[in-house]
Amino acid sequence: MSIFDIQHNRKNTRSVKWDMLQSIFQTDDVLPMWVADMDFKAPEQVNQALIERAKHGIYGYTIIDDEVRTSITNWLSHRHKWDIQKNWLLFSPGVVTSLHMAVQAFTKPGDKIMIQTPVYTPFYKVIKNHGRQIVTNPLQYENNYYKIDFADFEKKLTEGVNAFILCSPHNPVGRVWKKEELTEIARLCKKYDVIIISDEIHGDLTFPNEVHIPIASLSDEVADRTITCMSPSKTFNLAGLQASYIVVANNKLRKQLNNQLLKQGIQELNTMGNVAIEAAYNHGEAWLEELRQVLKGHKDYVQESFNKHIPEITVTNSEGTYLLWINCSSLNMDTEKLKKFMIQEAKVGLNPGVDYGEEATTFMRMNIACPKATLEEGVRRIITAVKSIN
């Protein structure tokens, strides 16, 4: 049996995913396939490193030393063909925190910040909460696949956008942007002098044969205007350890961002986050390679099952992440009815698409980072519920 087939009981562990069902779905009787963490144990080398650190029993102030930085630079070089300098690294508790810091460091209240919708819900908050204006560049949905509308992208930039937040790979639609797409984004942002804030937390989670390209790795010129936010948390299921980093090549921009982090007092990592980054990046590659195969198999299973039994629901063609973007428009339900249907009839806890953008009212987001038995049960529930209304 694969380690990814083992079912672990996560209830009563203060798990957002499993212990907040009543508050999120108003019932405990749903199978949670929503919030983006995995039902898999982290790599054994990570767990052992944490256990060994805990045995020491003293949790004083912790430094981010050269070994931790080296583990990051080696990972980015080996996995993503991106060679960075250790002094380009800054640290924060999480990528969303980093986005908040970047918005405050590089824009002013009233400035316009562009996002590509439908998109990860915190993007809206990191703009609105700081008094900035949201500008949307809606992705084009054609033939069950998403593309960038570059004509609209440039039009919006001409109207005075100050920063662009890129989601790469994209959550929730699962696109892994191609080099040509990233190159055109970079060209237009340079043309209109727009800073790029790139959320690349899902960068390691591409399907086999798909390649994530950090946008800042395209050229020194692109790196000079890019703030790249990354973390091993999605890759190795470490979100609760609150450890992420930011790569900033431009000395001036890095100083600005570091000042913002210092102002908020959040420029360090906690003791266990420090240990986990180093262990995951130094020893987690084999685990990740198996995971990527598992996730591709899970995606194919859901897609084939729905196509065979309930073609009314379509799984969007994606290239990465463990989040499936499901088109339920053929069910002819509005947002509220669709949400209730999945909770009350299918008894599966998914994320409503409307949370990611007004253009996604008939979509749902499904987390497939779970053992195959759990996945099969979730799929069975949805198929049974949809068939019952036909």
Rank of each mutant, 00 (worst) to 15 (best):
H202S: 11
D204T: 11
K339V: 07
H298G: 13
V386M: 09
D111A: 06
A216W: 04
I72K: 02
G57N: 10
K55H: 13
G349T: 06
I63Y: 01
L182C: 00
I64N: 00
M342H: 11
T62N: 15
W177S: 01
T335K: 14
Q7K: 13
Q344F: 02
I343H: 09
E345M: 03
E345K: 14
D149Y: 02
L288A: 14
P208F: 06
G349C: 05
E336S: 11
S2F: 07
E345I: 08
K11Q: 08
N87D: 15
V95P: 02
P208C: 08
E376Q: 11
F236Q: 09
A280T: 12
V222Y: 00
P169G: 11
A279S: 09
K178P: 00
I3V: 11
A105E: 01
F106M: 09
Y281I: 03
E289R: 15
N332Y: 00
M114S: 14
E44W: 05
I215W: 07
V46N: 15
K125L: 08
Y356Q: 03
R175Q: 08
L324G: 00
P232S: 08
V119A: 10
W88T: 06
R69A: 04
I213Y: 04
N9C: 03
C328S: 04
F363R: 01
I165A: 01
K128D: 13
H309P: 04
P311V: 12
A163R: 03
P122M: 02
T27A: 10
I64F: 00
T316I: 06
Q26S: 14
A280S: 15
I165D: 03
T235G: 06
Q260W: 01
F153W: 13
T235C: 13
L241Q: 01
S388Q: 02
A42Y: 09
V16I: 07
Q260R: 01
E358A: 12
W75L: 08
S244H: 08
E278Y: 06
V275D: 07
G349K: 01
V161T: 06
R53F: 12
E67S: 10
Y124D: 07
P232W: 05
V46K: 15
M1W: 10
V275F: 06
S330R: 07
L182Q: 00
Y245F: 15
P43G: 12
Y124C: 07
L261D: 00
Y322C: 03
V68N: 01
A385P: 05
Q26D: 14
P43D: 12
S168D: 15
A276C: 04
Y59T: 03
I197E: 00
E290I: 05
L90S: 08
E268D: 14
G357R: 05
S233L: 02
I195R: 10
N209L: 02
P122S: 03
D111W: 03
Q26A: 10
L331F: 00
Y146A: 12
L331M: 00
E200M: 08
N12Q: 10
T206M: 07
Q48H: 14
I197P: 01
E184K: 10
P352Y: 04
E200G: 10
I185L: 02
V96F: 03
E377L: 04
I72W: 02
R14A: 11
D220S: 14
N162I: 06
Y301R: 09
C370F: 04
C370T: 12
N87Y: 06
M364I: 05
S2L: 09
Q85H: 08
S219C: 02
R10D: 04
V176W: 04
F236T: 09
I165P: 06
Y281H: 15
R132N: 07
K17T: 10
T97M: 10
Y124Q: 05
A276D: 04
A369R: 01
